[in-house]
Design a protein around this nucleic acid. Sequence first.
DNA 1: CTTCGTATATCGGATTCCGATATACTCCGC
DNA 2: GCGGAGTATATCGGAATCCGATATACGAAG
Lengths: 112, 112
Amino acid sequence: MRPPSLAVVHMLLALSGGQRHGYAIKQDVERRTGGDIRLGPGTLYEAIQRLEEDGLIEEAPASADQSGRRVYRLTRAGRAALRVELRRYDTVLAHARTIAPELIDRTSGGGA
Amino acid sequence: MRPPSLAVVHMLLALSGGQRHGYAIKQDVERRTGGDIRLGPGTLYEAIQRLEEDGLIEEAPASADQSGRRVYRLTRAGRAALRVELRRYDTVLAHARTIAPELIDRTSGGGA
DNA sequence: CTTCGTATATCGGATTCCGATATACTCCGC
DNA sequence: GCGGAGTATATCGGAATCCGATATACGAAG
């Protein structure tokens, strides 16, 4: 189980805000990142399958009722895994602040 | 050019602390992450090649002199790319603080 | 009935990861 | 000089992952 990509971490994070179905995860991630992270159907549903197999997410009870929508939520292990990844990012940023603080300026100038 | 993995970002970060050769990058990353990120020869040298092809790093002048050591340093584009990745991590952490602050506790207490 | 947006699923090419393997040099003790 | 350990670089091959293209289905709007 390789460490999840940024896109997948964003998916996990979206789910940490409450249970939701695949397409809603996609929209949540795209909206929240301002379009920086875009999830095609391949990335989205394959990641969901993998995440479910690994026990990081699970289908919520009373999920696929009406129109085939499957609602997912984070498991305990999923929350733990997310915490680990988040800490890794925090570690990188901490090192960056030590080694090269000028790389972390908030004067984004251009974009969003 | 897919976004670099955490391991590669660590490599870039090591290089942002000054020019060095491959093996030194490996040691730097492993030491700084406390062994969390381990770079085998495959990961290390293939990432170096890719990074050089993409113009993110370059061989320093007077590099492969003595014992075949190749010394690398970050290019301008490399610094810019590193900044982008760092900002992405920062964005994820910012969202995490908003959505699920309890996932970012500094009580590193438990394991290593 | 046709079109559009939502929603899910699978396929296939390309990329990346990373351990195993190979080579070569240097320092050290003997 | 010889053998071993650590340093240093490079390539191969299997596996995992990414992600656009494609397909299906449903409901609302025209």
